[in-house]
């Protein structure tokens, strides 16, 4: 019997956006999947070793995950995203992830797909090309992609409808605005989420909103923005801003798009408490918690006044 191919998926960056799609796709193609563990000290150290010290924390974590997977699987999935159509670019870091990984780890096989809609490189074509490397049967590849895509859509819908129910209850609600790869990461976002949950606060995630709708909403706040991922977050802020009691921005230092977008949002949104939390490799938890505590006190005070 043929040995199953082991595909490594780094638990960073787009994993938090496409995890269902990737897992389902490779499972349908009879591959073993190895997902790297939650970010820990070892991975961060590895990431620091393999990246330039100025790069953003999220990308360091990504490199750490890739380095961790290096000798544990046959190939690693590193997608390359350039744009989702005209005026829908992404941070340039995603343009280069493949080439950086390839040059840093020359011995590793890298599975890769490319999305560049302005040059007619669609997600579908990318996945088919990638699938044909793993499995010669093209019908099976197409079937796997379609079923994986459907499953992802269903999964997203469930998450979004779950969040909608949270909006109705009476607890203090805080909108957390951060890229999914920051907020769901064990090192960057989880201490904050954990603390807020302990304080009995309902957390509304900005990334859980129908993506097309979110992009539409975003134009009301800013019309020249061209990063898709930031657009989705801005749209969510615009949608949720009247439904929540406060907004927390979480950024990894020094994120390019966030440095401009968050500043603009903070300047544009008034009458709602906002705090901007910047996280780097040496952020201390005690300092973070003090800031969050005082922020929550402000919200509570404001709410009592209104009641």
């Amino acid at each position: 019997m043929q040995k199953k191919i082991k595909v490594g998926i780094p638990r960073a960056f787009l994993y938090y956006r496409h995890s269902v799609l990737w897992k389902e796709f490779f499972e349908k193609l009879n591959c073993n999947i190895i997902v790297s563990p939650e970010t820990n000290k070892e991975i961060i150290e590895l990431g620091k070793k393999y990246s330039i010290d100025e790069s953003c924390l999220s990308s360091k974590i990504y490199m750490g995950h890739v380095a961790y997977l290096c000798d544990k699987c046959d190939c690693i999935l590193v997608p390359r995203i350039c744009d989702y159509g005209k005026n829908n670019n992404v941070c340039v870091k995603f343009n280069a992830l493949y080439d950086i990984a390839k040059n840093l780890f020359p011995r590793v096989n890298i599975l890769n797909y490319n999305i560049e809609k302005t040059k007619l490189k669609f997600e579908f074509i990318g996945f088919i090309k990638m699938g044909l490397i793993l499995n010669k049967n093209i019908f099976k590849v197409i079937y796997s992609y379609i079923s994986a895509k459907l499953k992802e859509k269903k999964h997203n819908k469930i998450l979004i409808s779950q969040q909608k129910q949270l909006l109705d209850n009476n607890k203090i609600k805080i909108l957390v605005v951060a890229h999914p790869y920051n907020i769901y990461d064990k090192y960057i976002g989880e201490p904050i989420i954990k603390f807020l949950k302990n304080m009995n606060i309902e957390i509304i995630h900005a990334d859980l909103l129908d993506r097309k709708k979110a992009i539409k909403y975003s134009y009301e706040l800013t019309d020249t923005l061209y990063w898709t991922y930031s657009k989705e977050l801005v749209g969510a802020v615009n949608y949720y801003k009247d439904k929540v009691d406060g907004i927390i921005f979480i950024t990894s230092f020094p994120c390019g798009p966030d440095s401009l977008v968050n500043e603009l949002l903070i300047r544009k949104l008034q009458n709602i408490p906002i705090t901007n939390i910047l996280i780097d490799e040496s952020t201390a938890e005690a300092g973070l918690i003090t800031r969050l505590e005082s922020f929550i006190d402000i919200i509570k005070g404001k709410k009592e006044k209104n009641d």
Partner: peptide, 28 residues
């Protein structure tokens, strides 16, 4: 400082520098 595209390039430049044994100095 913090220029993302050039940071991308820097990760690869170190390899070019090694292959061609050409010294590169980085200013930020």
């Amino acid at each position: 400082f913090g220029c993302t595209p050039e940071l991308n390039a820097m990760s690869i430049l170190s390899k070019v520098s090694e292959d061609y044994s050409i010294p590169i100095i980085y200013f930020s």
